[in-house]
Simulated scan of single mutants.
Amino acid sequence: MGSALEDTDEDVEDEDEDTTEAADAKAVTGGKPSGGASDAELFRQSEIAADYVEGLLDILDYDGDIDELVSGGRPMVEVVGGRLQALVGQRGATLEALQELARLAVFRQTGSPSRLLLDVGGYRANRRKELAAVARNAVEKVKEYGEAVRLEPMSAFERKCVHDVVNALAGVESESEGVEPNRRIVVRPVG
């Protein structure tokens, strides 16, 4: 198998802590983490998604190694290889769309929604590192000037990464504001 992405996306229904996918999963599963699915069920979801992605790669005539795994109570599919940037797209937009298609493929076969996470060429792992730096920079500005900092609009995955970093630090808090596709994070001093 491949390396597991470190993703600690917890189901958060609070509107300030955005995770559209987590809220959707809670609505369908009654709030149970991972819908109460066993590791075997989650791995089956990753296998279904991997088969779907492999079919797409064949149609596009792209080469890539596909790993299916379960990490953090979540099914995952990782695709690695050369010439895959087109599958990521600008700021991960194509990757997000492919992830939704893979989730639909899982839903079609299982009848249950999936919190599947798809990564292509290590994009999500690299983006998570970049976003951690963005979050730390915003926190430094908030602490230095005592004023809220509004970040650029981000996807649900990106916002979750920033929330995780900010919430781990003392003296600051974060919340999401706005409406997709312009939903953004505001980092502010506590109190």
Score class of each variant (00 low, 15 high):
S3C: 15
S3G: 14
L5H: 08
D9Y: 11
D9K: 02
E10M: 09
V12D: 13
D14R: 11
E15C: 12
D16W: 12
D16P: 07
E17V: 13
D18H: 13
D18M: 08
T19V: 10
T20S: 11
D24R: 01
A25I: 10
A27G: 14
T29A: 13
S34P: 08
G36W: 02
G36S: 03
A37T: 00
S38A: 08
E41G: 06
L42Y: 05
F43L: 15
F43A: 14
F43D: 08
R44I: 02
S46A: 06
E47M: 04
A50R: 05
Y52E: 01
Y52N: 00
Y52A: 01
V53D: 00
D58H: 03
D58S: 14
Y62R: 13
D63I: 00
D67K: 11
E68L: 05
L69Y: 12
V70M: 07
R74Q: 10
P75A: 01
E78V: 12
G81R: 02
G81S: 04
G81W: 02
R83Q: 15
R83N: 14
G89M: 04
A97R: 02
L98Q: 03
L101C: 03
R103E: 06
A105V: 01
R108S: 08
G111L: 00
S112H: 08
P113F: 02
L116N: 09
L117K: 08
G122Q: 07
A125N: 11
K129D: 11
A133I: 06
R136P: 10
R136Y: 02
A138F: 05
V139T: 12
K141N: 08
K141R: 14
K143G: 03
E144F: 03
A148G: 13
L151C: 09
E152G: 03
P153I: 06
E158V: 08
R159S: 06
R159N: 06
K160T: 04
V165P: 07
A168N: 12
G171Q: 14
E173L: 06
E175Y: 14
S176G: 06
E177G: 13
V179G: 07
E180R: 05
P181H: 04
P181K: 07
V186G: 10
V186I: 14
V186E: 13
R188P: 05
R188A: 14
P189W: 01
G191E: 13
